[in-house]
Each structure stands twice: as C-alpha cells, then as structure tokens.
Write a protein that binds this DNA or RNA. Structure first.
Lengths: 219, 219
DNA sequence: GCGACTTTGTTCCTGCGTTCACAAGCGGTT
DNA sequence: AACCGCTTGTGAACGCAGGAACAAAGTCGC
C-alpha cells in the first residue's frame, strides 16, 4: 500500500472543517471558482495560511484562476472522512442535548444521531427531531447494532464520568464532552472537551484588557 | 498608576478559566490546600504548564506546601475580571439559546444575562430561567440601561451578521458567536467564534486516522 | 538546631504554528 | 507566438506554546 498519510496537524483539520462549510454554501449558490483570498475572507483566516492548509491535500488549485468549488469541497470531505455519514450517540437530553440533537449543522455535515439517551424517566419516550429518547439500559445494544464509534456527552458534570465509562465499555472510541469536567478514559479512546463558558471568559478578559489599555492611553 | 499588565497569552487565559472552575469546586468541598500536581490532574493539563500559567499572576504558592485554594481562586477571578458579575445580552432563543440561558455555568462564573432577545413573535414573552424573552426592538434600550458590553449570538446563520451589526451599534464591544458564519465587525469590537460541529469533525478525523494507523500495523 | 523531603518557580530547549515574501505556472490578449 | 497580470504553492523567519530538568525555599522529623 502506498499510503502517504500526510499527518495533518490538528489546527489545520479544524480549519478544513470551516472551509468545507463555506465551500458547501458556495456550491449551493452556484459558484464554480474561488480564489484563496475570497475563501480566506469568508472563513475568517489569512490567505497564505489557507493555501498552506490546502497543501496537505496535495495540489488542488489552478494558478492564475483559483480553486474549483465542487472539486475542492469533495476532496476536503473525503480527507475529513465525512463523505458518508457517521453514526453518533448522544447522552443527556437536557436543554443542551436537545439543541445538539436538533442542530442541522451535524446532520448536514456527515453525522447522524442513531441514539438519544437520558437517565431521567420523564424524558424517556419524548421525540426529538423524529427520534425517541431511550433509557440508558439500551445503550450497549444500540452501540453494538449501529457500530457507532462517536459519542457526545451533554449531561450534568457530576454524572459525566460514569457516562464516559459506560460509553467506552459499550465500544465508543471517540467522545465529545460538553460537561465541565476533565474526563479520564482508557488508552485508545479520544476525549475532546468543549466548555462553553470558557470561551465567554476569554472574551471578557480580552475586552477588559482592551479597555484597560485604552484607559492607559488617555491617562 | 503602576499597571504592570503582564500580557497573559490567550491559551493561558483559557486554562485559567478551567483552574478557576476546579478551585471553586475544591473550595465548596472544604479543601484548603492543593498541590500543582493534583490541580493539574483535575484540570487535565501538565503540572509544569500549570505552574507556568500561575506565574503570570505573580508568586502565589508556598514551596513545600502548595497553593491555598481560596486565595488562588480569588486571585484568578480578579485577573479574569469575574470578581463581580458582568451583564450579557443573548440573541436567538432557539434550542441552543435556551440551553445557554439556563446553563448554570454562566451564572455561577461571573456572567448574568440581563436580556434575552428573539425576532420571532411567538417566542417573545416566554420565560426562560425567570426572565422574559424580549423583542429585538428593545435591544438598544436594554444595552444602554444595563451597560452590557458582552453579547452572545445563538441565531441561525443567515441573520447572524445583521444581529452582529445591531449589537455593535447598541454598544456591545465583545461578541461570542455560535452561528456558523464568520462575522465582520468594526475595529474595537472583538468577535469570537464557536462552531459546535467543528469539534465533532476534528474528533471524527482523529478517530479515523487512529483506525487507519492501527490497520496499517496489522497489515 | 540540623538534615532530608516536598513542592514551587524558573530556565532552557525543542517543536509547532503563523506570517511574510518570492518563485512558478496558467489564462487571456495582442 | 510572446507578453502580462493574476493566483497558487513553497521556502524561510519569527514568535509562541509545551515539556523536561534544575535550583530555591519552606516544612517536618529527629
């Protein structure tokens, strides 16, 4: 096998996902070509950085012209592995979980939820986005039946670790955690942490710093 | 004024927010001291990196003993500017907006929503977390009355830019955007982008890469 | 009072990411 | 057919983040 496996850095992967979204929108709008400058502006990044990111896919543009929208979109989709949709399970159908289950951004970009789970009996049986909420007891069965390797945790913090354990024993290999706790998982299982309030705190700090700098100038 | 202004790097600020959360939990549990090792483990980072982060606050630990929980918590809170709660406005009360409005992580960590806004007449008047949803027409008045400088956008992508424009003209200086579009704002206004599906795509890519590597070993 | 242990604060170094700047290549035009 | 403008792709330099190792300092035990 001649597997080049270019070892794409993680920061580049995150940006490729953004480019993919922009390219999909451009394709829907009927555009056939884009320049790196226009694409970078729409994605909110530097044009040179964008070109370097695309280098990891091999040469895929035409000098003097730009990139063909559909070709580039499909190539990024193939590299990211979203050419066909991947099954995911979602645990914790509170406000956030409901939002995630309904979020069109997942379904339209290569992910489909094959199981929604909650521990509260009151929530089991509800329909969210056309799917019933199931009890936690069904987790192993659903994961096995659908071969889901991706799991999303949207539970309160205090039960997140036990949910993580159950997901890993059920066979899930990659976990996206929205609960504000650091999870520990066995080797071979990726855990990725998203803390919504951290972003807001960083933003507040930058704003405060900017305000202090401005006040200093006037002083 | 002797303002040292240490220029804390952004990555450090994000981690400080995590340490703050862990320290708050430890303080509630009655703990008085922590070592860098234990704190790093709870936050999911390297102990040496944690100590380097805390260096930006000036020396605040005791060698041979560790850090005093309450003192460190308060100092981080002061540096991050969350010693007293900051007013925020939230636009777009769909599934995600409701989750954000109800999310205790904001309220308990230095932020309070002083206005929930939505353009849909059907949503105006609903109560979320004890607060009424207001029409967009009230935005300028509320921002002016509460001196809110932080705004959160949780609307569909196609109206996010116009909401951003209205927020900036109302006087908001920092915007956290959950809509999957790159926003353009005038100079002096910070915009921070959070795309929930990007994280899931990165996770899927890493899992796929790991799976491919494993298959290659067995080949 | 003294020694050993523990833990912080710092320094160095390695690697990565980002940016700038330039050469290479393609299309259109004369 | 040759030239010109435009855009990609790449090479180099800069700055930053992360990790390991070491020195300083304080506490506990004897």
């Amino acid at each position: 096998m001649s597997s080049p496996r270019p070892r794409i850095p993680e920061a580049t992967v995150a940006r490729l996902a953004v480019y993919l979204r922009v390219l999909a929108a451009l394709a829907d709008a009927g555009r056939s070509n884009v320049s790196s400058g226009e694409l970078a502006s729409a994605a909110g990044v530097n044009p040179a950085g964008l070109r370097k990111d695309l280098t990891h896919l091999g040469p895929c543009g035409v000098r003097g012209v730009g990139y063909e929208v559909v070709t580039l979109r499909d190539r990024i989709a193939r590299v990211l592995g979203v050419e066909r949709s991947r099954p995911c399970v979602l645990v914790g159908i509170g406000n956030l979980g409901t939002a995630l289950a309904d979020y069109a951004g997942f379904g339209s970009r290569g992910f489909r939820f094959v199981g929604l789970f909650d521990a509260a009996p009151g929530r089991v049986g509800q329909e969210i986005g056309g799917q019933p909420v199931r009890p936690m007891e069904d987790l192993d069965e659903v994961v096995a039946a659908t071969a889901a390797t991706l799991g999303v945790i949207a539970t309160p913090a205090d039960v997140a670790q036990s949910v993580c354990d159950r997901l890993t024993t059920a066979g899930v290999r990659s976990i996206l955690n929205f609960a504000p706790v650091a999870l520990s998982a066995p080797a071979g299982v990726d855990v990725r942490q998203v803390d919504l309030s951290v972003e807001l705190q960083v933003l507040a700090f930058l704003g405060q710093q900017r305000g202090a700098a401005a006040a200093e100038v006037t002083a």
